[in-house]
Design a protein around this nucleic acid. Structure first.
Lengths: 209, 209, 209, 209
DNA sequence: TATGAATGAGGTTTCATTCAT
DNA sequence: TATGAATGAAACCTCATTCAT
């Protein structure tokens, strides 16, 4: 491996380290309460160094969010391309959501926060574009599956976009809601089972008979 | 009415005015971006005066959130006490959610912000208790309805708490998700219809046959 | 005097105090080296307070500069409207310059710095407009006098705009150059006499015979 | 040429490269806005390397300024030693100034920035001494010419030092003032012609009859 | 000698909160 | 009770300079 390669790799590693630190801090404090200094501390770097790798605090947060969206879009498209029934696909969508939640529940919550109100309005056009792209990609894949289900006469004749919204919303809702309940009740985490039940019921509700 | 009574009433009126101003500002800016000065301006008072009525900015936000939770709990309990079928009750739950969304879509988003992550972690025990109380109240009422549906052999035999979570989550999810899509796409607001479809599908999915 | 009047006056007084402090600090350190904290300290206020009266550091500096330009424009126009010969008018221009220099030599130097390069490029349009307005006002008045001198056959036939530039330039030049010499030599201040001689020579040089 | 010689020469070449880069960057951005990184980039070196050749950013700027002063002193002394009339000498001084302006209009403005206020106060004694030396050299040469003019009965009997200041000031003033007007008005550059006219008028004003 | 990643002090600015009137 | 000017802590970010390689 040449010196150039090594440097590039080293730089990437450092970026990842910072992103990991940021994920951790954003997760536990939220975007506004998290400070750049804390992130730097967590990454065992000085604050100034962060700015060698990322434009500003916002970029850090946005990259983390887009990362998740991208991961989601990928996984969902993989499910779509499988040779299984529409019902099974929708069940697998559920699994994708569960996996993602288990990977990093907190940054996911931040993602939903990002997507609603406040923050969304101040993003740069190109970042907004990325968010749109991946959102549409993931959402569109789900719409296609629903549409096919309707075409095959398996699903009731609801607007496919609305149905995909419902699936997606259920996910967002369960994550946010059940997660907040967990915080309030100190109970164990029901997100996974609740999400599975939700999808089971919705699939049943979607079917023609 | 004695002078003491009048003073007390006057004080309450003033508090309400401030809360209204705060609701307005929090709605349009979100908790972090809203400034105390703006709220004071909206209330036609000076910043200092706000601190005669409320401990701090956070308290204002929390009270507003609890207010909404309380409103929800009330409405849902009223639905429960009506002499209608469980299915109709669940449909009416949906209406309650829609009404609330239409009353003030933003404060609702703030509520979810409150309930997850960032804010929730910094609340005082007594406030946390209130939030728990009203959450449980609203949630419990929904659980009861679902339980009754199961007992009557109308609904499938899922855990009633989980089912109530599903209903509630759907609400949270649709509001957040469809709302954010609206921001991204500049499309018109589909929240209401999506929520109705969601509940329709869930009810169908819940039914035994 | 009503309370409203008093408050307004009080506010103006405070603004003046801050401007005085800023003038002092900018004068001794220059724009970049001066810190907001120093200015606040000089004004016996906290840094935050400055921002209640002025938008930012730049505004402070610009206001000081415009103030001087305005003063100049006023004085020069007064000279123009007097019922004296063109030669006497130009001599009086010199006096105006001298007075201004004696009022505050340092901020004047900053003004010339402002007008050249660096800073000028980053000003807000409205501020730039003000600078232009007052510059043109003062400059135009000088041009008129020169033009009249040429029309009356007293002055040689040079382009009046260029001649006004020469007068103005001489002022700027003497202030900057002689002032810097003063810093280098620790000699006493020759600005006044040099400026007078300059104008004397230029007037002689301008005359037809 | 020994290896020691070669090394020394190599070092000098590198220094010159860096100075050229610095001149370029200082010219277009001004001292404060120019960053060491930019200069390094322009010199195709790393920031760290600059510090092997120069103490710090300030030294770079100061050396450039002294270089110009030195150049000026040289050229002016050459004019003085020519076998021409005092009037012609003064006209040639004007040409020297024009040449310098045309070589690099911005570095000159930087020189005046150096010479007045802000920067001058923070210089090391030895650098200050150099600036003094070259200033006096250039200035003294001009003083001599004026003095000779007076001795020969050609010029009016003003203090020669003051007259030399006037010439020098005119230069400084025209460069700064007309240059700033250009920035404000987007007009084409009148510096050269204005400077010529200025000197013409001053020479006429200086003459005895 | 050359690098360039890392540093961290220091700057500007915001805003929740206080307190003299 | 009401004011609102003043506070000052704390945030983000820049960049001249250093130092391990």
């Amino acid at each position: 491996m040449g010196i150039y390669e090594r440097k590039k790799r080293e730089k990437k590693r450092r970026k990842t380290e910072i992103l990991n630190a940021a994920r951790k801090v954003f997760s536990s404090k939220g975007f506004n309460s998290a400070t750049v200094e804390e992130i730097a501390l967590e990454a065992e770097l000085s604050p100034g160094t962060l700015y060698l790798y990322f434009k500003n605090k916002e970029e850090l947060h946005t990259i983390l969010s887009i990362e998740i969206l991208k991961y989601l879009a990928d996984k969902i498209q993989k499910v779509v391309s499988q040779n299984i029934s529409v019902e099974e696909k929708i069940e697998k969508f559920c699994n994708v959501f569960v996996e993602l939640y288990e990977y990093d529940s907190n940054i996911l919550i931040n993602l939903f926060h990002l997507q609603s109100g406040e923050t969304l309005k101040n993003l740069s056009p190109e970042v907004l574009q990325q968010i749109k792209t991946y959102s549409i990609m993931a959402h569109g894949a789900m719409v296609d599956v629903v549409k096919k289900g309707i075409d095959q006469g398996i699903f009731i004749d609801e607007h496919p976009v609305a149905v995909a919204d419902i699936l997606w919303s259920s996910y967002a809702g369960v994550v946010l809601w059940v997660d907040s309940k967990r915080l309030l009740d100190d109970q164990k985490n029901f997100v996974k089972s609740t999400l599975k039940t939700t999808f089971k019921i919705i699939i049943k509700g979607l079917k023609k008979e």
